[in-house]
Amino acid sequence: MQIGVILGDVHASVSPRDHLDGLLRQVEAAQRNGITHITMGQHFLYGDLRWLQPIPTLARIAAELDDHVTLATTVVQVPLYHPVMLAEDLATLDILTRGRLVVGAGAGYREDEFVALGVDFSRRFAMFEESLEIMRKMWTQDVVDHDGEFWSVTGGATHIRPYQEPHPPIWIGAMKPLGVRRSARLGDGWPITPETRGPEMVRLLSIYEDERERLGRPQVRHPLRREIIPAATTDAAFERFEKMAKERLLAYANRSLATRSADEISREFREVARKETFIGTPDECVAQIAEMAAVVPIDPVLVRAQWPHMSSDEVVAYLDDLGRDIVPAVAGITSVDRVVREPATA
């Protein structure tokens, strides 16, 4: 089992210089601690938080990349680009990484981003599929001709092919059964969100595998986006996560929990953490990962090392803890090849 890190957002009050310096410190610490995947999501017009754009940022990180590390976009919002431009940008990035790129692709879910960029939010899934079709042509054909619903390309002479042949692996994001089937049909893995819990994960992965079997496509293991929070004791691990993710805790307070006491909010937060994270002593975290890997085909596990209010020293300390206590211990874990399903009842 491998561990990866997703590079997140910081407060806009952090200077661009400090943001970049902290990002590079995080990348160095991740690689030094045996992290095998460095990934980055995408948002536009993010208000009080700054989320650097993934393609140019990962291109900069490629200059620091160790041989054992893969970069991934998790996920780039495909309908917000012209597919010719996106295909060339990603092929360029694959070259800059010497073939160590995974293209994580999604249709997007924030309508305000689409409105700002003048793209029809209601048509995003159809645009997503057509864009992927054009991108694959751009990566595999000398001349591209395409006459579709959203884009037309006539006699497009391609000039940038990916380093990998025929192209980088594609992880396709989804949250519902229809999207999971789309991911099975069009991609090479489904990035599982942290909110997708045990029974629902088994159900959706079963849908994925059934669709792959129907299409005659090979089964795969899937990246799992989930926090790993180790500490000396179980209580200390929960305290650590509350400190790391305190803005998430405040979000609970500002919603339905606003009338509850601080202790009640903390208990509610811990209940969610139990279901959405691997948390506890290092041995407990490793056991939780092994338990899940025995049921569902997952690899790598993608964690978030930096939350908006954390200092670079805190981020590095967290990654050092992973490198010492978690990464070597999970290296010997191999997940199942296919989801273990509950036996059918009569």
Rank of each mutant, 00 (worst) to 15 (best):
V339M: 12
R274M: 08
E200N: 02
D94I: 01
G332S: 01
R98C: 01
F128C: 03
D48Q: 11
S131K: 09
E88T: 11
W51Y: 12
I170T: 05
V27L: 05
Q53N: 10
R338L: 07
E209P: 15
T234H: 06
V202N: 05
I298W: 14
E239D: 13
E111R: 12
T234Y: 06
R203D: 06
A29P: 11
V301N: 05
E213Y: 04
R225Q: 14
R225S: 14
D320A: 07
G47S: 12
V69P: 14
E149W: 15
G155R: 14
M244Q: 13
A116M: 07
L257V: 02
V303Q: 05
A232M: 03
A126K: 15
G198C: 02
R270Q: 07
A346M: 04
I6T: 03
R260V: 04
T259C: 03
G155M: 15
T196K: 08
M1T: 04
A29W: 09
V202S: 11
E209C: 09
Q164A: 08
R182A: 13
R181D: 03
L319A: 04
A107Q: 09
L23W: 09
D325F: 12
I265Y: 06
D210I: 00
K176H: 13
I95R: 07
R226D: 08
G156N: 08
I265V: 14
W151L: 13
Q141E: 15
V14H: 00
T154N: 15
R324C: 04
G156K: 09
R50W: 13
E200I: 01
V76L: 11
I298P: 15
W190G: 08
M175H: 10
W139H: 03
H68F: 04
Q219I: 02
R60W: 15
R98I: 00
I265G: 02
I192W: 10
Q77P: 02
V327A: 06
A63P: 04
P223L: 10
G189C: 08
D299S: 13
R161C: 02
R274C: 03
H222A: 06
D48N: 10
Q77Y: 07
G216H: 01
H11F: 10
L204Q: 09
V339W: 15
F241M: 02
W51E: 04
G106D: 07
F125C: 10
P343V: 00
A59I: 10
L86C: 03
V10E: 01
I229A: 00
E242A: 14
E111T: 02
I35C: 01
P328L: 08
D313N: 13
A305N: 08
D142S: 13
S183W: 05
P282E: 02
P191K: 05
